[in-house]
Write a protein that binds this DNA or RNA. Structure first.
Lengths: 271, 271
DNA sequence: ATGTCGTGATCCATATTGTGGACCCTTATG
DNA sequence: CATAAGGGTCCACAATATGGATCACGACAT
């Protein structure tokens, strides 16, 4: 038993994450096969295991795969430690109401940022470039860039290096130098701007959310078509985002201190 | 490739669920070995895989295992489908304030009920029989019994049969006939009562939460020492719980209909 | 100091376990 | 009614996980 081992577990967990990224819409087997790089029998076998454990469910009629109840239970149990969504929800709703555009919370997950929630705007022309579950390398997209820019310089370099292959392969508009420049601009401005680099005409403004120790753990952002994000409105929205980010940070700090209250070990029953 | 297969995945997912049941407190390796029935090298190897994927984290200093960020992300992505906690949170807080006792939301997970959140009461003498992450077979404990009693009779029998081994092994005070009687009493009364059967002197009152289709998916409950749960107060609390359960059900019904709005398939980037 | 118990982590020969190319079935499509 | 696209499955092959034994560390107790 050296370092690695348990390869089927790695693959299964990768699949599970993949199903999660499609939550809400559901995924077909062939999409999963394609995105995971596994082959059909293997993917299916692992999905059966995930279903046995309740982490994934399959719609009998459409045969599409969705996250299962156990995934939800697990996340709820992890919430005291990482509960960004529950504290950011109010802010996202408020932002979307105030701006009439779609608002988002994203969370940092290692080298990428994942969109946890999208609150639909009321303005009739909307961009659907970002949806719940979508992920982008840190630095690509408004929220994602806001998170990156809030990291220490050394960490930024580590992240960019680790992301280099993905960036080169799938984000042609994002060479590392461009991201470094964006980081500088973000810091100078106070908010991150994505001028339609992922989907043309779909612009975004984002601000980072930090934990009690000052580490960037996520971001709030707003997306709209380019004509609705001219510089003066950018700055306005940037200020709104910053104010809401502060509120979220306060709630987080409060709950985190509760969480770190020592809890005595207790006997338990297990199934 | 017949029906089963992917056994290491089954074990890994079992371990993951187990770590979740200890979330907040963290678990040591030996506890996991004991509770999972695996042996040390295997458990460790699987935990390494879970850590590689970010579902589990290990505290460098204490070597205890906790749920990781990916678990949280996954749960947040599953929330639109199963979001009980986010809709019940308000009610639980209110219940705990009103009664001064500890209040809980539990969710049904197949044959058991899992406590998703405990809101501490203010009354100085408190029972700690139920904590976040603990699970009991359906029928054992106030919330758990409330859920069971809300199921169709046929399903109750199926559940009791499937749970028979666990009940016999770990719940000596809960023979199936006793549970059947409790179900009848619960239905007659309108709320479930646990008269200290899991931990002596720790009583509980619970009411089920149903989804839009009338299926019991979880429960709200209150726990206190026996002297604080004499019959008149039981009934009072039962009414409070029923009122809050209705509120949660309304929020759920609303959000569920939003969820089922068709969403067009969209191209995505994946890491 | 030093013995010993509890816990965490790891080695490595064994055989059980997963792998994936080829194939079948069902449902949409022209 | 042909054809394709997607979902699901078989089975010979070999790579993979398994777990008893062992080591490493820290916390007491002597």
């Amino acid at each position: 038993m050296d370092f690695s081992g348990a390869q089927s577990v790695d693959r299964a967990l990768g699949l599970l994450a993949l199903v999660g990224r499609h939550a809400g819409r559901g995924v077909g087997l062939s999409t999963l096969v394609e995105e995971s790089g596994l082959n059909k029998p293997t993917a299916r076998r692992l999905l059966l295991a995930l279903m046995r454990a309740g982490f994934v469910e399959q719609d009998e009629a459409t045969r599409r795969y969705y996250l299962g109840a156990e995934s939800y239970v697990l996340g709820s149990l992890a919430a005291p430690r990482y509960g960004l969504l529950q504290f950011a929800m109010d802010s996202v709703v408020r932002l979307s109401r105030q701006t009439q555009d779609s608002a988002f919370v994203s969370v940092r997950r290692d080298l990428v940022s994942v969109c946890l929630h999208r609150e639909e705007g009321t303005y009739p022309v909307r961009t659907h470039a970002l949806q719940t579950g979508f992920e982008h390398p840190l630095g690509c997209g408004a929220g994602s860039l806001a998170i990156l820019a809030a990291l220490p310089d050394a960490e930024i370099e580590t992240v960019l290096e680790a992301n280099a292959p993905v960036l080169a392969a799938s984000y042609p508009l994002y060479p590392p130098e461009r991201i470094r420049a964006d980081v500088a601009a973000t810091r100078a401005r106070g908010y991150a701007l994505n001028p339609g680099l992922i989907v043309a005409n779909s612009w975004g403004v984002g601000v980072a959310i930090r934990d009690r120790f000052g580490r960037a753990i996520g971001a709030l952002s707003i997306a709209a078509i380019d004509t609705r994000l001219h510089p003066p409105r950018q700055a306005e929205i940037g200020a709104l985002l910053a104010a809401e980010a502060t509120r979220v940070e306060q709630k987080l700090a409060q709950r985190q201190s509760v969480y770190f209250t020592p809890v005595p070990e207790t006997p338990r029953k297990s199934a």
